[in-house]
Amino acid sequence: MSKTKKAYVYKGFERFWHWNQSLLIFLLALTGFEIHSSFSLFGYETAVDLHNKAAWAFIILIIFAIFWHFTTGEWKQYIPTTENLRAQAEFYLFGIFRNAPHPTKKTLISKLNPLQRLVYLGLKVLIIPVMVVSGLLYMFYRYPQDGGIEIINVDNLEIIALIHTFGAFILLAFVIVHLYLITTGHTITSNLKAMITGWEELEEDDEEISKKEDNE
């Protein structure tokens, strides 16, 4: 076992963003699938109301998150790489059962393993934008109809609704797998603790001296 050192991995805003996003996604899923008539929980009108309010909160959160990612340079965490991609996949499929070490070393500059990079990037640039755009069209579809701006006329809500539903299923599937993968850190709870406190035991690396001291 290599030496480990506590490092401040997830900054305050990052955690705030993450947990609010998770709350909003749960709320949006609950109310969204009620609107889809999958079950009854809040009542239809309340569900629509909550869904729309949560959507606006989510959009505001996303705007702040984008700002944060670019000003801090954290967006670079999501640059996809093929290095170790296969090894990472093999770890989840086989190595994890043999107590093999994680193939990707987590550092402050590279917090995400190649699989995470790919999946999170996909969420950020594909699934969430699709949900936001289709959601906004869902909310405002009457306006193009009413205003008669032909190019954005929505003659049928169906295609928008189906895309929005499709995205919802993908997001839910992500949440299921994501929740499970929390338990695959160095210990069962180390990932969860890190996202709550920001601190995580990282393998010591000569070049990667954590800024633990600076922060205390």
Binding site: H36, A161, T165
Partner: peptide, 15 residues
């Protein structure tokens, strides 16, 4: 298409 009334059965099944 009306939300809550209509659905695409293929999409829902696949989902």
């Amino acid at each position: 298409y009306m939300p809550g009334r209509d659905r695409n059965f293929m999409l829902d099944f696949s989902g």
